[in-house]
Deep mutational scan, measured.
Amino acid sequence: QVALSRTQVCGILREELFQGDAFHQSDTHIFIIMGASGDLAKKKIYPTIWWLFRDGLLPENTFIVGYARSRLTVADIRKQSEPFFKATPEEKLKLEDFFARNSYVAGQYDDAASYQRLNSHMNALHLGSQANRLFYLALPPTVYEAVTKNIHESCMSQIGWNRIIVEKPFGRDLQSSDRLSNHISSLFREDQIYRIDHYLGKEMVQNLMVLRFANRIFGPIWNRDNIACVILTFKEPFGTEGRGGYFDEFGIIRDVMQNHLLQMLCLVAMEKPASTNSDDVRDEKVKVLKCISEVQANNVVLGQYVGNPDGEGEATKGYLDDPTVPRGSTTATFAAVVLYVENERWDGVPFILRCGKALNERKAEVRLQFHDVAGDIFHQQCKRNELVIRVQPNEAVYTKMMTKKPGMFFNPEESELDLTYGNRYKNVKLPDAYERLILDVFCGSQMHFVRSDELREAWRIFTPLLHQIELEKPKPIPYIYGSRGPTEADELMKRVGFQYEGTYKWVNPHKL
């Protein structure tokens, strides 16, 4: 086992960053958080920038500027975001240094004079007029057009580079997404736009490419001749908990499936790229999406959770019991969808996408189930092999396979070949997804960000279904809070070829 401390991990990262040409360590950078008073800024962006600063992973002359409508001070920003920093008493001095680099400007999102004030403020910072500028839009999409237009007109660096990070949702359907994309691309070049999907920053999602293309053993079996089906799962054990009003506007397909799960599907299904260059990788992902037809209604199961009468606390409440959810809402909190990649490698292999709230566990994984062994000599005792990439929690890679049961006879039983990170790298604290992705933006690497043509294809696949749901308002199937979801989803999976045995229990190697 390799035991690495946080300091050692960050030392390795620093070495990698400083050796590259793309990370300008000594240049002045300004990180501007648009929507600095909001939840995302408070819980994710400010803490992430602090962790990067604490670990010495930001360029040395980096300033952080918050911008929002609320009249706040840096002290206010500190008060609301610091509880999420997880700072230790030993880091007190470092924390003071961090907040000394912070400033805040209040202004409207659609007022040109406010942006001119913001620009004057940035120019007044040390070497601010020639600094590289990175704008993070932690804002609702309704203000994107006004904000990007004003940034472009008043706040661009004339000497350094300018980059803009856009948070999902990128529209509600193909038409609104196209409108937003066309607007942003009329102001910024594609190499300046970073559409963030934080799932692409997760260690195991990034590991998929290495697993596939750096190991000879997987190449020959990664196709329709050997793989019976692919299941991509995202499960949350909690409901909307008072935030249903926002969720109800989008629903589970827009929230998770059309982005996170579809991105994971691309990494499983794509061909080997010409290189690890950002556009070479994204070219292959677009090719996969172009091979997927629009979702067919007979390959869809929609569910909505109801309270568990035997549960406790939140578990007793259904989705419609959330006071922020519109009365009688038919918005799905669970969806199972089957897609097919219609190309030579994957023809006929079902890709089953499942996601839901208020389920029995927290889990995100990719599961490849292989065909049955031909010419069975073990009297149907063999179960199908599976390769599982567990994204969260407890990152893991393992192969479910058959071995001989101890004893006199040739009785096979299920076991696993474990390729888990935790076994080799004991207690290594890896940077989280937002840390990686923000560092990628500083480096100018777009590999783990969504390109406009990729986004367009993703919406093309799901828009007809979303429009049909909005028009017909089908009643989702009720499922109990804390269950596996509607049984109809299991029946759909069985119908397209997935075999669920229920006889195997994964042993978490992190707890051995």
Rank of each mutant, 00 (worst) to 15 (best):
R484L: 00
Q258V: 07
A364N: 03
V268R: 02
P412H: 10
V301M: 06
W459I: 00
E386N: 04
P406M: 06
I352E: 00
V288H: 00
V281I: 13
Y319M: 00
R424F: 05
E284C: 13
A396N: 05
S452K: 08
K404N: 02
E284H: 08
K475S: 11
Y434K: 05
R424G: 03
L471Q: 14
L430S: 12
F351E: 02
V373Q: 11
I377N: 08
L302E: 04
P474M: 14
K473D: 12
D310F: 14
L387G: 01
K272N: 06
D321I: 04
L471M: 08
R345G: 09
M270A: 08
L289R: 00
S445K: 13
D280C: 13
R436V: 07
T330H: 14
Q381D: 14
Y425N: 08
N299C: 12
T276H: 09
T333M: 00
V388G: 02
K505P: 07
Y500V: 07
Y398R: 03
H371D: 08
G422K: 09
G482Y: 07
V388F: 02
T503R: 11
N298H: 15
E414C: 12
H467P: 07
Q369E: 02
G348S: 10
L267G: 06
V300R: 08
P406D: 01
N299M: 12
T324V: 08
T399E: 07
N360C: 06
N299W: 09
H371K: 15
D255H: 03
P350Q: 02
L417F: 01
Q380A: 13
P309N: 15
K357Q: 02
Q468K: 11
G375M: 11
K383Y: 15
N394M: 10
F370W: 07
C443K: 07
L289E: 03
V256H: 00
Y340G: 09
R460C: 06
L419R: 05
K272I: 08
L320P: 07
D283F: 01
A335S: 13
G313S: 11
W506A: 04
R367F: 04
I292F: 05
F442Y: 09
L262T: 14
L417P: 00
D255R: 04
V288F: 09
N308F: 11
M401R: 05
A332E: 12
S275F: 06
E342T: 12
Y504F: 06
K285D: 02
A364M: 13
A335N: 03
E435D: 08
R495G: 13
E284Y: 07
L387E: 05
L466Y: 05
V450Q: 07
V268I: 13
Y398M: 00
E501T: 11
S293E: 11
N423K: 12
L419C: 14
L455P: 07
A489R: 05
F442A: 12
V268A: 08
L359C: 13
T324N: 08
P350G: 01
K475G: 12
L302R: 10
G328V: 10
S483R: 08
N427Y: 09
V301R: 09
W459E: 02
L387Y: 06
K475V: 14
R362K: 10
T403Y: 06
L265R: 02
T316W: 10
